[in-house]
């Protein structure tokens, strides 16, 4: 499948009733500053609606998958950390990846983004086979990730962190870098975009501080904002809410749904079931490296395999979703 096919398909199926993408002006979840042309083609409402027909089973086919993984296996010595037979991620929706500690979620993330190489398996992102694509190129294809352990670049200022995220910078080539006139104007544009994003994420007051002076939650925000500088089509967030105080969680959640409403695809790992319930459109459950269940968030708690995975197989009551997993 090529990228063009995807877009044709998109136009056929999704465009007819497409409305404006951006949220109301001034809304903190307004991601219009990061939308690119490609995203304008994605209608997240329709994408979500399309999920209604997807069966609730592991490896379910999606109507418009942006990311497809097949038979991805990763072993560490004797331990098989990931063994995913078939996974598809629907374009334009928020998919949550959940599972007990050590289920292999982070490892799976690493495999999907090529930060780690699988022992077997193929992965296709947005029509490109990415099996032999180095990790940094994946960002240029439009997939960007964050890390479970936040990676703020401590000894760089917040604005520098942000500007780093922009792709295709002329001044990042060695010979051009010593000739400032070659890149100064592009730098100005990047800076404007970074400032707008900082504004959205309410980080403007930290603009010229070292990122190392930020709190854990602020770092999470910065990492997400920086990822958006890449102008991605798909954002992969590894536990974006971990360690963030409740007051900040709401705004983070707002940002994540904002990404979707702007047409981006979001795949995120989360342990807090409340949040998963609140924002995700689809849930994939991993346990011991395998995909054991899939379905809309409301159905997951009733799934016997999921209950077994979380509570041990002897337990047979439905999962109480008020209990944090």
């Amino acid at each position: 499948m090529t990228g063009n096919n995807f877009e044709d398909q998109l136009k056929d199926e999704l465009i007819p009733d497409a409305g404006p993408i951006a949220g109301p002006p001034g809304d903190s979840s307004d991601m219009s500053v990061v939308t690119s042309e490609k995203l304008a083609l994605v209608d997240s409402e329709a994408a979500r609606a399309a999920l209604a027909d997807v069966p609730w089973e592991p490896g379910a086919k999606k109507p418009d998958p942006i990311l497809v993984a097949d038979n991805v296996v990763r072993r560490f010595g004797g331990l098989t950390a990931v063994d995913a037979e078939h996974v598809e991620v629907q374009r334009g929706v928020i998919t949550a990846l959940i599972g007990p500690n050590g289920a292999g979620k982070t490892t799976f993330f690493n495999l999907l983004t090529n930060f780690d190489t699988p022992d077997e398996g193929t992965r296709v992102f947005d029509g490109h086979n990415i099996d032999n694509v180095p990790a940094h190129k994946i960002a240029n294809y439009g997939m960007v990730r964050t890390f479970q352990l936040t990676k703020a670049l401590s000894k760089m200022t917040v604005i520098e962190n942000m500007k780093l995220g922009a792709t295709g910078q002329k001044g990042e080539t060695l010979w051009r870098s010593v000739l400032p006139f070659m890149w100064k104007s592009q730098e100005k544009e990047i800076e404007a975009r970074a400032d707008a994003l900082l504004e959205r994420f309410k980080l403007s007051h930290m603009r010229d501080e070292f990122a190392g002076t930020m709190s854990g939650g602020q770092r999470k925000l910065l990492e997400m904002a920086r990822a958006l500088m890449v102008e991605p089509t798909m954002v992969m967030l590894d536990e974006p809410m971990a360690g963030v105080n409740p007051a900040l969680t709401q705004s983070l959640l707002g940002h994540v749904t904002g990404l979707r409403d702007a047409g981006m695809t979001v795949l995120f790992v989360e342990h807090d079931m409340d949040m998963v319930q609140e924002i995700s459109d689809w849930v994939i459950v991993m346990a011991e490296g395998r995909i054991i269940a899939e379905g809309p968030p409301a159905t997951i708690g009733q799934n016997q395999a999921v209950v077994d995975a979380y509570l041990g197989s002897h337990h047979d009551s439905a999962l109480d979703l008020d209990v944090e997993l």
Binding site: F115, L153, K155, L164, G165, V230
Partner: peptide, 16 residues
């Protein structure tokens, strides 16, 4: 500088 601080972060942002 980004690579000095965290190479993986730089790679995730598309830097070789």
């Amino acid at each position: 500088k980004a690579i000095r601080e965290d190479e993986d972060a730089a790679r995730s942002l598309g830097k070789n």
